[in-house]
Amino acid sequence: MTRSPLTLAADPALADAMREVRAMLAACMQCGTCSASCPNAQSMDMTPRRMWRLVLLGRADTVFSSGAFWMCSNCYACTLRCPRGLPLTSAMNALKRIAGASGHPALARHGAFYRAFLDNVRRRGRVRETEMMMRYFGAAGPREALRFTPLGLRMLRRGKVRLELGAGRWDTALAPLFESAARLEGKEARP
């Protein structure tokens, strides 16, 4: 991280996008319990505590260029332990959501897995893990696929992976729900 002074310049667009998260975290007192409890903090380029601080300061640029929140594995340890009772895991997910919705390609790449997953849900009703992974590899690139090859083969051997192609019984089951959700969230997005 640069040691240059951090000036709180107003960045209305990004700050606005994070307003929801700021509200979730406002009572944070930087005690660091979340960071000490986080199993993945070592893999993050900044600690959750620092990230929350930046969120509170409205530094969307720094927060999203870091992407530490992508490392959250939803273990809820921080949420459970936070002495202020803040919904920190939800805040992590909210950041993921904002990043994914930002349309920024760099941010979008991180969210590929989640979008591939949910896309599969939307189309299939129930997730077809194999199909979903194929789509994810399509989005994430060939190197990601190669990483999984040995595992894929092992699973194939064990009969854990079935290639189901074609239409499935639940394919359209969730269409109405996704539509109304999109409508509702779209509606709310408008002022």
């Binding site: 040691r3 240059s4 951090l6 000036t7 930087q30 620092r50 601080r53």
Partner: peptide, 15 residues
Amino acid sequence: IAAFDPVLGRELRVT
């Protein structure tokens, strides 16, 4: 106001 923010590990400036 410029101050070192220990959590961020860098200086913070607010006007």
